[in-house]
């Protein structure tokens, strides 16, 4: 779907967002700790980031001044499944904090698999279980990684 291009067409809005981030970045450079003048030689810690910030601002200006298209295509909407998947990623972090990484991985694989349309419980459970088992064998048993155990893990094993 397309519509006549408004003054603040998409790339201009993007340029504004880029400029805002660049300004925040530049502002951040003023919060760096000062280095005593006697110890300073050459460029300090803030000059290069400031230079980069100004380059981004300049590029944002160039983007804003690009010729506008005759019509603006509407961005495809993020559907319910997209939002739900994102929410599942956040829920993964919560489950991980509570029950540990392996449990969170299993729950995520079952939950998101169902969300994406897999309705066979056996397939979901087997794939999630198999995957988690492989990861545990490879990373915990072979590579010796310590995965977060969550509050539950801490209570059970510590």
């Amino acid at each position: 779907m397309s519509r006549p291009t408004p003054f603040l067409w998409r790339d201009r809005r993007v340029a504004l967002a880029v400029a805002a981030v660049a300004l925040a970045f530049l502002a951040g450079t003023f919060s760096f700790d000062a280095v005593p003048a006697a110890l300073m030689e050459g460029m300090g810690a803030s000059e290069f980031p400031r230079l980069v910030g100004f380059v981004i601002l300049l590029l944002a200006l160039v983007l804003a001044l690009q010729p506008a298209p005759a019509e603006e295509e509407a961005l495809p909407a993020i559907n319910r499944c997209g939002w739900a998947t994102f929410a599942a990623c956040l829920a993964f972090l919560a489950v991980m904090a509570l029950a540990g990484m392996l449990v969170a991985m299993f729950a995520f694989m079952v939950g998101v698999g169902w969300l994406w349309g897999e309705r066979r419980p056996g397939v979901l459970l087997a794939s999630a279980g198999g995957m988690v088992l492989c990861l545990w064998l490879l990373f915990v048993r072979v590579f010796g990684l310590t995965l977060p155990g969550g509050l539950l893990g801490d209570m059970l094993f510590n």
Binding site: G113, S127, F139
Partner: peptide, 28 residues
């Protein structure tokens, strides 16, 4: 199937981000 592949990619990604430094900050 994507319903099995992408959740698996996610968990691999989590462990891939976590693995090198064993840091949750990298996962965030």
């Amino acid at each position: 199937p994507p319903a099995l592949l992408w959740p698996a990619v996610f968990v691999l990604s989590v462990i891939g981000a976590y693995g090198p430094n064993q840091s949750m900050g990298e996962v965030y």
